[in-house]
Design a binder for these strands. Sequence first.
DNA 1: ACCTCATGTCATCATGTGTGGACATCATGT
DNA 2: ACATGATGTCCACACATGATGACATGAGGT
Lengths: 192, 192
Amino acid sequence: MGTVTPLRRRDAARSREQLLDAATVLFAERGFDRTTVREIGEKAGVDPALIARYYGSKTGLYIAALHAETGDEVPPDLLQHGRMTRLLGRVSRRGAGPVFQAAVRAHDDASAQDAARAELQARLVEPLRVRFEAKGLDRPRLRAELAVAAFAGIALGRGAGAFDALADAGPDDVAALTEQLLQGLEAPVNRG
Amino acid sequence: MGTVTPLRRRDAARSREQLLDAATVLFAERGFDRTTVREIGEKAGVDPALIARYYGSKTGLYIAALHAETGDEVPPDLLQHGRMTRLLGRVSRRGAGPVFQAAVRAHDDASAQDAARAELQARLVEPLRVRFEAKGLDRPRLRAELAVAAFAGIALGRGAGAFDALADAGPDDVAALTEQLLQGLEAPVNRG
DNA sequence: ACCTCATGTCATCATGTGTGGACATCATGT
DNA sequence: ACATGATGTCCACACATGATGACATGAGGT
């Protein structure tokens, strides 16, 4: 960070970064399929051919964007106070993001699918799993995945244009009800 | 039904039906985007050009398939006993279906989107809404949409290949936990 | 000043997709 | 038997998209 980077008219690192940023935004908004490399290039102000040069392919750029998104600290679980509201707010502003989309619809490309699944498991499923396990619930993994899938449905549903009330409600309202919903999973075993 | 239909080598009604059936299956399995008219034609044993003749366009066929799916009786709500297990079982066998997919991802085409939303509201949201309203819960519409969105996430998540435990669990196990989950929404108001 | 390589630009290809139209062929009424 | 309309087949267009490679151009070392 301390190094002075003179403004160069040709800067590979900068081009890479611009592509990554544009791709992150567009993939989050419109998903992988509905985002074209030309759109990415246009938004980034960079020739789309450079995607192939720097990331190998559109899929490579997608995977890079997926990993770059995970820049934060250790992820808290969904049920921790405030987490859900913040997450829902971000989804409202920036779109659901590629991870949630992958939760609900498989990718054509196998490597993209693997990367998305790994991200989903690490960032969302695993924290919930340890929470449920600490509570002594049975099948904590299944419960965690169920919760994440349900949350993904809600987060995506808000922007899908098929739910009126859900789309109009504020993030905090939705978060409150969603918390209430997910707490149904923390009840003790209920076998048939 | 009583009319004897002699086996004709050329039968427009039959061709229409074959196309509709094939489209129903394929749209349910792979969604609208990932299904091509050539695939539909091949599966139906009918020339794909007839889609344009009989349904106007691929979108027209999609809408027709959407409406044809709704051949059943008055839909019960998701929380009625047995309903969820049966629905999850069907999803496992035949795919999630276009309605759930539309719940989570908007269509490009406006008329397709409208049709899917109408179907979703009538078949899934509305029954739950009246249930919640009868229970005296506030914001019943929002609760109903939330529940449907969550269920859509779970149903789609099972086949998306991002959740291991969720995909491996049996429909009845998933249904039991999902019921438990959704019952969290039937709790009384919990305003902040 | 010049050489060399990184970087960027552009044209183009290969492929897939929905749609429309020209033509063939069967069924049916007279 | 023949005419006519319905039905089916086939070809090809127009377009979008991801990828590739040839070429131009700027930057930095010597």
